Amino acid sequence: MFMDRLKDKIAIVTGSTSGIGIGIAKLYAAEGAKVVICGRREEKGQAVVDNITKEGGESSYHFFDITNTNSIEKLIDDTAEKYGKIDILVNNAANVALKDGNIDELTIDMWDAIFESDLRGTFYATKCVIPYLQKNENGGSIINIGSMASCGGDLGSTAYACAKSGVDMFTQYTALQYGKDNIRCNCVRPGLIVTPENEANVPEVLRNIFLNNIMVNRYGGPEDIGHMCVYLASDESEYVTGQIVNVDGGLNSHVSTSAQFRELNSRTW
Rank of each mutant, 00 (worst) to 15 (best):
G220R: 00
E238N: 13
Y231P: 06
L211I: 11
A233L: 06
I209Q: 08
I225P: 07
T241R: 00
T241G: 06
D224Q: 06
G221T: 15
G242K: 01
Y239H: 11
A233G: 14
M215Y: 01
E238D: 14
G221V: 15
A233M: 03
F210R: 00
H227C: 05
P222Y: 09
N212A: 15
S234P: 07
L206S: 06
N217W: 08
V240D: 02
S234E: 02
P203G: 05
C229D: 03
G242I: 04
L232E: 11
I225G: 04
S234F: 09
I214L: 13
E223T: 03
D235F: 07
C229R: 14
P222C: 14
S234W: 03
T241S: 10
M215D: 05
E238Q: 08
P203E: 08
E238F: 01
F210I: 08
S234C: 05
M215H: 00
G221E: 14
M228T: 14
R218E: 15
Y219C: 10
H227R: 15
E223Y: 10
G226T: 11
V205E: 08
Y219L: 13
C229E: 01
G226A: 15
N213G: 09
H227I: 12
C229Y: 13
M215V: 11
F210L: 13
I209H: 10
L206D: 09
N212Y: 01
E236W: 09
I214N: 06
G242E: 10
D235V: 02
S234Y: 00
I225Q: 04
N212Q: 11
R207F: 02
Y231D: 06
P222W: 07
F210A: 10
L206T: 07
S237Q: 08
V216A: 07
E223K: 06
M228F: 07
M215R: 06
V216S: 05
M228Q: 04
N208C: 07
S237W: 03
V216C: 12
Y239E: 04
G242T: 01
V230I: 13
D235A: 13
R207Q: 08
S237F: 14
R218V: 06
D235W: 06
E236K: 01
F210P: 10
F210M: 10
I225F: 09
I214A: 02
E204C: 02
P203W: 11
D224T: 13
V230P: 05
S234G: 06
V240R: 02
H227Y: 14
Y231S: 02
G226K: 11
G226H: 06
Y231T: 04
E236F: 11
L232I: 12
C229S: 05
R207A: 01
L232Y: 12
L211T: 07
G242Q: 04
V205S: 13
I225A: 05
I214C: 04
E236D: 15
R218C: 06
G242N: 03
M215L: 13
R207K: 12
R218W: 05
T241F: 04
P222V: 08
A233D: 02
G226I: 06
